[in-house]
Write a protein that binds this DNA or RNA. Sequence first.
DNA 1: TTTATGATTGACTAATCACTCCACAAATGT
DNA 2: ACATTTGTGGAGTGATTAGTCAATCATAAA
Lengths: 185, 185
Amino acid sequence: MDKQKDILNAALKLFTEFGFHGTPTSKIAQEAGVANGTLFHYFKTKDELIVALYVDIKKQLGFCVAKDIQAEDSIKETARKYYVAALHWGIDNETEFRYIQQFLSSPYVSMIPAELVEQSLAMINMIKEGIKQKLIKVTPAEYVMSIISSHLYGVNQYINSQKLSSAKQKQLINESFELVWKMIT
Amino acid sequence: MDKQKDILNAALKLFTEFGFHGTPTSKIAQEAGVANGTLFHYFKTKDELIVALYVDIKKQLGFCVAKDIQAEDSIKETARKYYVAALHWGIDNETEFRYIQQFLSSPYVSMIPAELVEQSLAMINMIKEGIKQKLIKVTPAEYVMSIISSHLYGVNQYINSQKLSSAKQKQLINESFELVWKMIT
DNA sequence: TTTATGATTGACTAATCACTCCACAAATGT
DNA sequence: ACATTTGTGGAGTGATTAGTCAATCATAAA
């Protein structure tokens, strides 16, 4: 009965299928089962809805990725947990993952609110710690972060495009982490 | 004096800045210095223009990447040349590179004409040859391709975001190839 | 019961957009 | 010289769109 959620879900579905351009707000309202005006009650503009949807998805991902991390984990273990959790999330939430990509390579990127930027700080700090401990050989941390992120993105895309069995997926995920780890250490 | 080229250039500039949605055909015509009707003389629809621009850019990239390859090059040398050329192209053609990303994560992907798909076949075959020679340890070839592509994409994004000096760029590009190579062999 | 507040509606509008049409100009062929 | 094709312009059009608004409805506090 949460209409705001309904609108976000409808927007996600239609935006990923038809693009920002291709989906009028009227269709979103219709898909969500609410009146046209209701959409604008929750989101002042279409742009605001587009950004809000990104923020919402990013928070889900952030929560999912952070939940298993424990203070006593080693750097490698922490990195693996981040990596594996993100990949699993990407597989279980294919549409959301696609929306992130779509959003990030659109001009709306510049509208990301400041509050979201700090989220990836935890990972950058972990990498910096790894570099300080001379575990990670590649520098600077931002470069390592960039490499890992794009690797994640590539593996995810491959897994989704191949529709592998669950077991094969798990194996690939673990192996692919070792691949990246080998590369940066 | 090539109006078709002018239109493509104007479209590239505006699409990357304001998105497909945010740039009306009238603005593209204006930016290109041609009349509204002229645009539709060269491209029947806006969608056709969007796809044609992608095809045009992809052909430029394809040409640039293939031009240095020689038949007697080793697998590794061939791979390096592909990789380095693509990265250099991405740095010299930042806007074009961004357009490729934007296009690929939009619903327009499904409109890519068949003729373009075969272009990346040369690279897949090279990887397959590498696997056959037991040089490349990671399989299948499509997976390797996926990893390399996304790595390229990540490094490019890092280089462009950091605005490194030309010398640092060159060094990073060569090092980053060795990084990927180490990973897959 | 009254009053207040916010959610919800859907008809409405002003603006915009992709695309057409047709007149004319330039190039090209005969 | 003429005919035909091709390129160019820009006003015009019908459809669509984001966003508004006045009016209801639901809920609950006073």
